[in-house]
Write a protein that binds this DNA or RNA. Structure first.
Lengths: 106, 106
DNA sequence: CGCACCAAGTTTGTACCGCAAACCTGTTTG
DNA sequence: CAAACAGGTTTGCGGTACAAACTTGGTGCG
């Protein structure tokens, strides 16, 4: 048996709270560094790091590692795809919320 | 500065796509039966069943099992708590989305 | 009757994954 | 030199969402 019609599929990759926060924050800026993202999202270093890795693997963000003042500095930005996908995701959440979908019976 | 995620908590119990759909649909009606929920959310029987069980264990919904026309009929409704929690969840999503921009450190 | 099939759910097996904690690597400080 | 620190990364494990198998009762039908 299969899903009849996977209606408003919410992509778990983006929907995940930590990544939803990351993506949403990134959507408001051109780029942000690791420490800024950590503060903005409240994630721990470890979790931020692994979420960023996943997002980069999915090509939703790009990661650039530099040294600034002899310290490592990781700069993150949404890709064009990423920008699209986070916008779409919020759209889907909107339509789920408004749930104006077809009502079969009763 | 307060992290925008001062209450960083998006409750995963509710945030989970399947359950978010269930709760949201339920918030628009007084009650709904299993089959209606299945159609409305696009979930399979199995997943709908287990999500409902979890929600009931958390006392976010009540489940009543009856027989209608000699067929089992499972009726589901939000508890008062459930109604509150789903509303709160959407509020949190809103504030995440509106993420009052702070000056990027860079 | 006996048997097949359906509808409405429930249970189960497992593969995935988020989280915290341990670890790494280079820099400044005493 | 050692020790503390900043900025990340890797690892171990506990929880869980999903699909598939199973259950339970009803209904045709020959």
């Amino acid at each position: 048996m299969s899903a009849p019609s996977d209606g408003p599929i919410l992509d778990r990759l983006i929907h995940e709270p930590g990544r939803l926060a990351i993506m949403t924050v990134l959507s408001t800026v051109e780029s942000a560094d690791f420490v800024f993202l950590q503060r903005a999202t409240g994630l721990t270093k470890g979790n931020l790091s692994s979420h960023l890795t996943r997002l980069a693997e999915a090509e939703l963000v790009t990661i650039e590692k530099r040294f600034v003042h002899r310290k490592p500095n990781t700069n993150v930005a949404l890709t064009a795809t990423g920008r699209l996908r986070i916008a779409q995701h919020w759209d889907r959440l909107d339509s789920l919320r408004n749930f104006s979908t077809q009502s079969p019976s009763e």
